[in-house]
Design a protein around this nucleic acid. Structure first.
Lengths: 216, 216
DNA sequence: AGCTAAGAGTTAACCGAGTCAAGTTTTTGT
DNA sequence: ACAAAAACTTGACTCGGTTAACTCTTAGCT
């Protein structure tokens, strides 16, 4: 089954070793306090090699999280027949909440908390995270376009959905960082998610405008 | 009227000289191709002084654009009585479009185009721009909160509005970058803005879900 | 006017991220 | 067994950003 040569196996192992070393050091000492030279040394690899596997220092950390880039697009694409995209995303996010998936922010494992503190506490990491979010948004827009809706609508919808999901996660992180236990916060987080998706579906006019309002 | 001492005046002039030198060089040679040492030399200033005025190389460029950080919040706060926030923002954006304000992306002055090409073509600049957008979003959320709506709704609404505004601007930039004249594209851009605000106000359910749909 | 304290500016040296070129070792296919 | 390909290393380099020590100018007081 493993038609993977020795070379590939070693590459995978090297990459993993670098990633592991980076994670250990970041969790132990924080992002700024660790230099890429430290990481390279810990992984027993030279600096140029490290940068062959990871383009930037930030990617060393974000790599673990990056797998979720295509997630929303996949959810929309794989939704059961008869279920509309928004509902599918809503259900999926509720499921992720129930699973205490770290992407939702609702996870109080010490390691997850530490990682998230580093993430939101380091501007350059947050900025890079936005780049990943951009990729996720583009993929989602494409998936939505397959429903036949016009491209502009899809792009705007993808942007709104992506930013709302990020806002929900940050909100949950804030609550967990405030000392709450994930289990205690689950109901609240689920309610917030329901509210957010209702807002996405129903629009802002109920709160900040007239339903049929049109400027000018 | 000028209760501004000689010291303040000199500081303002120094800052301006640095900013001007930076803009000239960036427009002439691009972002990556210019080093901060070049800019410092052109402004006849030492490198540490340059960094006293601008925290990062990116800020050297973004400073000109940064004034818009409080704009949406101000529009909401200063809206005429009886006009709801969403309408006020919609009207304001249409006015900015009519004025060919660079923030809308609908501006084909060569210098503006060159600047925008640099902006969107340089990932680190785009990332920094997101930081500015974050500030704008926070300010807008605060302004919306003054309407009495609950904080979560305000934060989500601010995030959605901000991201949609950015998407519209990028859309317009793309059209202008494609070679179109701003005057020819104005009607199209206005229609897109109307569509976007209708989407914000009315929600996504018309396109991607049932109006009364609720997951589970 | 003359003195002093604040603070803007300079020089010079430094750190860390990221890149490059040249050469060495290891895997692979024949 | 051998040659081509590809990973890795070393060492040196560029550039963004910071620090410390020192100089010069402005502000404010008497």
């Amino acid at each position: 089954m493993t038609d993977e040569g020795l070379r590939e196996r070693k590459k995978r192992r090297t990459r993993q070793a670098i990633s592991d070393a980076a994670m250990d050091l970041f969790l132990a000492r924080g992002f700024r306090q660790v230099s890429v030279a430290d990481i390279a040394a810990a992984a027993e690899v030279s600096k140029p090699t490290l940068f062959k596997y990871f383009a930037t220092k930030e990617d060393l950390l974000l790599d673990r999280i990056a797998d979720h880039r295509e997630e929303t697009a996949r959810v929309v694409r794989d939704r059961p027949a008869g279920v509309d995209p928004l509902d599918a995303l809503h259900r999926h996010f509720r499921d992720r909440l129930a699973d205490r998936d770290p992407v939702t922010g609702l996870n109080d494992a010490p390691e997850t908390i530490a990682l998230r503190d580093i993430l939101y506490g380091t501007p350059s990491l947050a900025a890079h995270l936005m780049r990943y979010a951009g990729a996720s948004e583009a993929a989602l827009a494409e998936a939505l376009a397959e429903t036949g809706a016009d491209p502009l609508t899809c792009r705007l919808a993808a942007a709104q959905i992506t930013v709302v999901l990020l806002a929900l996660a940050e909100d949950n992180w804030r609550r967990v960082a405030g000392g709450g236990r994930a289990d205690d916060l689950h109901a609240e987080a689920a309610a917030a998610a329901d509210h957010a998706f209702a807002l996405l579906a129903g629009g802002l006019s109920v709160h900040f405008g007239q339903p049929a309002a049109s400027a000018r």
